[in-house]
Simulated assay, not measured.
Amino acid sequence: MPFTNYALDKFFVQGISELSECNAPALAEHFAEVEDLIHNFILNSIFRYSIKTEYKPYIFGIFRRVQMALVEYQNGRTLLLLYLNESKKNTSLYFQALSHFEIAVTQLYQAYEFWRKLGKKIESKETNLFEKGDGSSLEKLNRLYNISKHLEASTIPEGNLHHV
């Protein structure tokens, strides 16, 4: 027996009863080579480009996290679509989707952090990913990352059950 809209909003997630479509676009077609990203990097570094050993940990960190961010994003999207297609009967699917999206945010932000650190190593100067208050996609990504990372119950807005 499915929960009523009131029960969904009151006891699971605020506003979940209004969720009727998945607005997370499919990314797989845009990133067809993501499965081979690390493999291709290794082959290219062997046969085409000489990459300083001191840079390789950063590059591996970027590629691994980008790859997993895309995998986790797709997992989250798949589960969210499944939740919606099952007429919202299995709320566990929603929370599984949310967890995958949170992991995707974490992986992507950490990839940018590796990028920033690699830039600092190459240029020997501090570089920022964004300027505070610039409204950029990276600033928004940082906000989501920090909300998820530093979750404290006391910071959840009144009437909400979850921060993200």
Rank of each mutant, 00 (worst) to 15 (best):
M68F: 10
Q96A: 14
H150T: 03
F130P: 05
L79M: 15
L93M: 10
A153K: 15
P57W: 04
G135C: 00
G15V: 01
L70C: 11
K117P: 02
S20P: 02
A26H: 11
K10A: 07
S154L: 05
S92N: 09
Y58T: 01
A32E: 14
L19Y: 03
R116Y: 05
C22W: 01
N128H: 08
S137Q: 00
R64Q: 09
E35D: 15
E102T: 00
N44M: 02
R65V: 05
R143Y: 15
S92L: 07
V13F: 02
P25R: 09
N160A: 12
A24Y: 05
L118I: 10
S137L: 03
A26G: 13
F60L: 06
F31W: 14
N160D: 11
E126P: 10
S92P: 06
L37E: 15
K132D: 13
E102D: 03
E139V: 01
I38G: 04
G119V: 06
K125L: 00
E126F: 09
H162I: 01
G135S: 00
Y112K: 03
V105M: 05
R77G: 03
L141E: 11
G119E: 07
L43I: 15
L161F: 02
T155C: 03
Y109G: 08
A69H: 05
L27D: 08
K56N: 11
Y55S: 03
D134V: 02
L43R: 15
F11C: 04
L19F: 03
K52I: 04
F130L: 02
A97I: 01
I147N: 15
I46T: 08
D9Q: 06
E102G: 02
Y49I: 09
H100W: 13
S87P: 06
A69I: 01
P25E: 10
S45E: 13
N90C: 06
S45I: 09
R64V: 06
R64I: 06
K117M: 12
L161T: 04
I16H: 09
L80T: 03
A26C: 13
N5G: 10
M68G: 12
A69K: 04
S17Q: 05
G159T: 04
E29S: 00
L93T: 06
V105I: 06
A111W: 03
I51H: 02
F41S: 08
S45C: 11
L118K: 11
F114S: 13
L8F: 12
G76F: 03
E35Q: 13
K52Y: 07
L82A: 07
K56P: 12
A111M: 06
A32R: 15
E72L: 05
I38R: 06
W115I: 10
